[in-house]
């Protein structure tokens, strides 16, 4: 178990390294002087020269990467010349709204999609099943921002139930926090529901065909217990896997959703940084998001041990 843990952690390092190299190269492949680009449009010649010296931009590219990666390992993502502060500090300030939005989205998505998927598999081929599959295709097709505006129009403008946009910090009370986050989370969870419900259905459908289901039913267990304790429990690994993979989708969705609902999180920061061509921030946010994605999937891999006792590493 511990040997596996160590091996799996070590296997993550090359992926993170490749991500770092790619993000590093993204800027070097840009036409023009990287120092001038990093400094932003408002910088003067001295500032540009300063950056060039700090990052070793007059030295070979391998040395440049060494300096950059060294800073990265020391927790230094560089400085945003647009926001005039450290990128790590910027990410820290913007973390709470994004974390809140993402967590609430996953909670809503799992609570809705898993029961739907189980019922669809249980009543395979029924109107409910076909309806869910049709919804799933539509969920994949409707763009997050189109859905966002439909919900704003209906829930906030017509019914006046929830705020149109904005964000309230968690510290200012759970009520306002939830009221501001509910609509964005529902918006964002739709594609996730489509994804997880589909996989839950397929996975539960597989386990419903197994002998132990017949045995469980023959024992006279209540159907709900058969479905949850026997069918769903054995179908858990693919479901958790798709939740992990779906984090990439979620991150993409966060960028759009925060923009529509004016939530001052990391997604909004990404878009603002791109519009300002603030490259240290763009690089920092992409690295941050990618590392989170890789680490969550590491956690997912490790969770298999608890979800399926047959898996021994």
């Amino acid at each position: 178990m511990y040997a596996f843990l160590a091996r799996r952690l070590l296997a993550t390092i090359p992926v993170l390294l490749v991500v770092a190299v790619l993000v590093f190269l993204m800027l070097r492949l840009t036409p023009g002087d990287p120092a001038a680009i990093l400094a932003g449009d408002a910088a003067n010649t001295e500032q540009i020269a300063q950056i060039r010296a700090n990052l070793g931009l007059d030295r070979p590219i391998v040395v440049q990467f060494g300096i950059w990666a060294g800073n990265l390992l020391a927790g230094d993502l560089g400085e945003s010349f647009y926001y005039k502060q450290k990128v790590t500090a910027l990410i820290g300030q913007r973390l709470e709204p994004t974390l809140s939005l993402a967590t609430l989205t996953i909670v809503i998505a799992v609570l809705v999609s898993v029961p739907l998927g189980v019922i669809a598999a249980w009543r395979f081929g029924s109107a409910f099943d076909r309806g869910l599959m049709a919804f799933s295709v539509m969920g994949f097709s409707i763009p997050v921002f189109v859905l966002a505006y439909i919900l704003i129009w209906f829930v906030s403008l017509k019914l006046g139930l929830l705020p149109v946009q904005g964000y309230q910090r968690f510290a200012e009370g759970i009520g306002p926090w939830l009221r501001h986050l509910l609509l964005p989370s529902i918006t964002l969870s739709v594609i996730y529901v489509a994804l997880i419900a589909r996989v839950t259905r397929a996975s539960v459908l597989d386990s419903l065909g197994e002998d132990y289901i017949r045995t469980a039913r023959a024992k006279g267990l209540p159907e709900l217990r058969v479905l949850v304790r026997h069918a769903l429990a054995n179908a858990a690994v693919p479901i958790v896997t798709v939740i992990g993979i779906g984090i990439a989708l979620l991150i993409g969705g966060v960028v759009v959703t925060e923009s529509v609902y004016a939530i001052p999180g990391l997604g909004r920061l990404t878009v603002d940084a791109v519009l300002a061509r603030d490259f240290p921030t763009i690089q920092g946010v992409i690295l941050f998001f990618s590392f989170v994605y890789v680490l969550i999937n590491l956690a997912v891999d490790l969770s298999y041990v608890f979800l399926d006792p047959r898996i021994r590493y």
Partner: peptide, 15 residues
């Protein structure tokens, strides 16, 4: 490992 939209956004910003 990098979310697709972020790659696209970064490349468009760079080019």
């Amino acid at each position: 490992a990098i979310p697709a939209i972020l790659i696209a956004i970064a490349l468009v910003a760079a080019w």
